[in-house]
Every structure is written in structure tokens, then in C-alpha cells.
């Protein structure tokens, strides 16, 4: 039982869900505006590398967060220019940026840290809630989580409110669903989409920053290992809402946590195939999009470049 729902597993779930949730939030913002951004993986990788690089060179963890975030935003800016202004194929551009991010970070990692990131780089601290120390379970789960885990949770709430409880959020959703309708009432479709794509890059980069500057303190080539894509899956499974994306991230993170805690465990003669747990996010997502598990419907204008009328 401890292996399935113990405080250790649940705490690990939160940790593992955090980078996924950041990417998923980024995905929600950009796709709600009508731009598909599969370069989230690359933005995350940028955040991870430039975050740890900044932590090492400046000696400041908060500055590292800022620089990591900026790096992801810059990569997203390329996507924004290509997909919003030039109306390029968003999948091709996204693929290219993912490969570019992998190449640039691996290249710089080799050139700068041929022998690995030195130890002793300043990292983001955990928030120690000592007053919870005595509380069973809860203390174990949230008593010592990193500040970025908390930031992710706060951002989920903030973005949920932004999207469904503010004027700007209303306009964002209108742009993603029916850009022409938004255009005819005077909403600037292009500007809305630009900001959304930039924000998505920044958010995904935070997930990357978490992996290096909060979690491991080191960098390896291709460190994000598909977490950006799991983030997209969480976005879809969470039906393009921040809270839904968080729930999906937690489900996916729980699967990851289980695959660690159940490693080598047997039921009778059968060793539990923990790796198969990791396929759950992807299978659930396919089933959700196909309408077999609920119906997950993307914004109507998602991935469709917008061209304003006028002759």
C-alpha cells in the first residue's frame, strides 16, 4: 500500500508532475489562441540549459529562473514570427525548433561543460513548511516541495482565472475559436497570438528550469526527454484548461512515480512491467482525442493561420 499511495509516492508525483504541468500550461495558452506549438519540448530544453548555465555563471538561482524563462521565450518568438506573421506550417517549424534546441544545447553543453556542470551551482530552495512536520501524510507530501512546484500550482489558478474570468481571457478564447469574428469586433488577432506563443515558450522553459536548477543541478543532452510532448498530451487530456492540464499532469506524474516505486516489485511470479505505466499518458491522450474517453475537442481555429480580409 505504501508503494501505491504513501506520502513518498504522492510527493514524488507532485515533483514529477511539475515540469509536465508547466509545459501543459504553455500549451493551453498558445492553443487557446489558435497556434499549435510542438516546439514546447525545445523551449523546455532551452530553459533547462540556459537556466543552469545562468545559475553557474551568475551564482544566483532567481536570476537563473529569469534567464531560463527568457531563453524559452526567445525560441518561441521564432515560432511566433514563422507561424503568425509568415503563416508557415506550424508543425514543420515546431519540429525544426525542437531539433534546433537539441542541437544548440548539446553543442554548447559540449563546448562549455565538456566534463559536466560543476557541482555547487546555486539551486532553488525547497519551501520547508515546518509547522506541517508533525502532520501525518500531508507533512510528507507538501512539507518540503520546491518553490517552483508551488509556483506551478499558483500559475494554474492564475491562468484558470485569467482564461475564464477576465476580459483578456475572453478575447484570447475568441481568437482561438473564431478569429474572423474577433477581428470584426476590433480584436487584434495577430497581437493576441504573439503574446500567447511567447507566454507558452516562457512557461515551458520554467518546466525546464525546474529540471536543472531545482531538481538535478546538472545537465545532460536531451535532458527533457519528451516531457514537453507529455505536456501537450496533458493539455489535450485536460481539455485545454489550466486546471484540467494540472489534473492530467498529476495523473501522468503519478504513473511516473509508480514506475519508480514499483521497480522490481513482483506480484507472485509476475514482475510488474513498470515501463508500461509510462505509456498511459499517450494512450489516454489518443483515446481522448478519438472520443473514446470523453471527447477532447481542440479550439476550432487551432493550427490554422489567420489571414485578415481586405482587397
Amino acid at each position: 500500500m505504501e508503494l501505491l499511495i504513501g506520502a513518498g509516492v504522492i510527493a514524488a508525483t507532485l515533483r514529477l508532475a511539475t515540469p509536465i504541468a508547466f509545459a501543459a500550461l504553455g500549451g493551453v495558452i498558445t492553443e487557446r489562441s489558435g497556434v499549435t506549438n510542438i516546439a514546447l519540448e525545445g523551449c523546455m530544453l532551452f530553459g533547462a540549459f540556459f537556466g543552469i548555465l545562468a545559475a553557474d555563471k551568475t551564482g544566483s538561482a532567481p536570476l537563473a529562473v529569469l534567464i531560463g524563462l527568457l531563453a524559452g521565450t526567445v525560441l518561441a518568438a521564432v515560432h511566433a514570427v514563422a507561424s503568425v506573421t509568415w503563416r508557415a506550417d506550424q508543425i514543420v517549424t515546431g519540429m525544426a525548433l525542437n531539433i534546433l534546441a537539441l542541437g544548440v544545447t548539446s553543442y554548447l553543453n559540449y563546448e562549455i561543460y565538456g566534463s559536466g556542470v560543476p557541482s555547487g551551482v546555486p539551486l532553488l530552495p525547497a519551501l520547508n513548511l515546518d509547522f506541517l512536520a508533525g502532520v501525518p501524510f500531508v507533512g510528507g507530501v507538501i512539507g518540503h516541495q520546491n518553490v517552483l512546484v508551488w509556483l506551478a500550482l499558483v500559475l494554474v489558478i492564475v491562468l484558470q482565472l485569467y482564461m475564464f474570468r477576465t476580459v483578456a481571457g475572453l478575447r484570447l478564447r475568441a481568437v482561438g475559436e473564431h478569429p474572423r469574428a474577433a477581428d470584426t469586433v476590433g480584436i487584434d488577432v495577430r497581437r493576441t497570438r504573439y503574446w500567447a506563443v511567447l507566454a507558452s515558450g516562457g512557461l515551458a522553459a520554467l518546466g525546464g528550469v525546474y529540471l536543472t536548477v531545482a531538481d538535478t543541478g546538472s545537465f545532460t543532452d536531451g535532458l527533457t526527454n519528451g516531457r514537453g510532448f507529455i505536456g501537450l498530451a496533458a493539455m489535450i487530456f485536460g481539455r485545454w484548461t489550466p486546471v484540467g492540464a494540472l489534473v492530467a499532469s498529476l495523473i501522468f506524474g503519478y504513473g511516473d512515480a509508480l514506475s519508480v516505486s514499483l521497480q522490481g516489485v513482483s506480484i507472485g511470479d509476475l514482475r510488474i512491467p513498470v515501463q508500461l505505466l509510462s505509456t498511459i499518458p499517450y494512450l489516454l491522450t489518443i483515446l481522448a482525442v478519438a472520443g473514446f474517453v470523453g471527447r477532447s475537442r481542440p479550439p476550432a481555429a487551432d493550427g490554422v493561420p489567420y489571414e485578415s480580409e481586405g482587397h
Partner: peptide, 25 residues
Amino acid sequence: VSSHLVEVVEATVLLVIAAEAIVRA
């Protein structure tokens, strides 16, 4: 020179091809 330079070159090829599609559009 890190072999990962190759990925950068490859990604740039893709981006320029995407830009070509734009020229056509």
C-alpha cells in the same frame, strides 16, 4: 567541434524550407 553542430545545421535547413513555403504562399 561538437558533433551536435549537425543538428543545428539540420534544423536550419528545415526552417529555411519552411520559409520557402512562405515565399510560395
